[in-house]
Design a protein around this nucleic acid. Structure first.
Lengths: 171, 171
DNA sequence: CAGATATTGTACAACTTTTAACAAACAGGG
DNA sequence: CCCTGTTTGTTAAAAGTTGTACAATATCTG
């Protein structure tokens, strides 16, 4: 979400100039718009979650757990689902456990493992926060496209998501 | 880049149910695809900058400075351009200064101010890294769309970017 | 030009994320 | 069984980020 310089630099090193596939003007502006929207949207959604005392990462955990069977998930699975490192997730669950939103629970059948369990408070928090969050998402993003644009962009993005998902884990 | 639950939760609190504008299925899958692509792309581009010993934020600073007049910019302007807090930028420039990529320089005419200056090493680094980075951006993103999709998505995203830019700073 | 107000960049403290190392438990082959 | 290798999740220390306060300077108002 934070990159740039994908068109030819002001002065190109002559060796790479011939070989580097710089972005065209149209590609460039699209790329920069994508970066800017991603970054600013992230910022704005965070801002609007603050009154609920949640960071976006916290909210994401609540969402994933609330959709999981029995509202719980193995730490590793949760880390994978939220694209976080195991270490980072461990810290985050510790914090959320202190806040009473989740609970670590032993995992019958695999004594190495732990479940992260949504507590009642966690569930209620989700119920309370989700409506506000959807409104934010609509106001700053979804409602700013036509249904046709939404369909078209989904068609375009889905294979890219799949490609990137495939890279994850390997190299 | 990290959110979710924007469709009705499995069990909705009856009060909010009537009033909350949950996303439709089409909106939902588009929204999730957008989040996923943003996040994974960020991850992958970071990964491919690592061999150059640069984080995405470092690279962005290099890009912005390299495009600025005299390859330098006031700290505050640079913070604004890269959407960072002044504090965070200050730390980051300190790090990059240690790495020899930029140099703080007094600002004639305003003795409060400082320029962040791209050094020769910084400029050369940029020249060296940019081609690889463009290839990454193409391989994982830009080349996965048709020119028509690129134009359409830019048309769709540009006003959203403007909207979000407008919110920045105020509330 | 004095005094109030705003801007600029840093410093400190609190918090989050990363990296690497680790202990515990599992799995599979001899 | 035992040995080796893998998976699971945590931890400690380092690195990075954020928020607040601050000193220095600039600017505006009368």
């Amino acid at each position: 979400m934070e990159t740039n310089l994908t068109e030819a630099p002001a002065v190109s090193a002559s060796e790479s100039e011939a070989e580097t596939p710089w972005l065209t003007a149209a590609e460039q502006r699209f790329w920069r718009a994508h970066l800017e929207v991603s970054k600013l949207l992230d910022y704005q959604l965070s801002r609007e979650l603050q009154p609920h005392n949640l960071a976006i990462n916290d909210y994401e955990i609540l969402v994933v757990l609330s959709e999981a069977p029995d509202r719980r998930m193995r730490m590793t699975d949760l880390a994978t689902a939220t694209l976080q490192s195991k270490s980072r997730l461990s810290h985050q669950i510790t914090r959320m456990e202190s806040a009473g939103l989740v609970l670590r629970q032993e995992c019958p059948g695999d004594r190495r493992g732990l479940y992260a369990n949504l507590t009642d408070l966690g569930w209620e928090t989700m119920q309370k926060v989700a409506p506000d969050h959807v409104r934010s998402v609509r106001q700053h993003f979804v409602d700013r496209f036509t249904p046709e644009q939404i369909d078209a962009m989904y068609q375009a993005l889905a294979p890219v998501a799949e490609h990137l998902r495939g890279l994850r884990g390997r190299g």
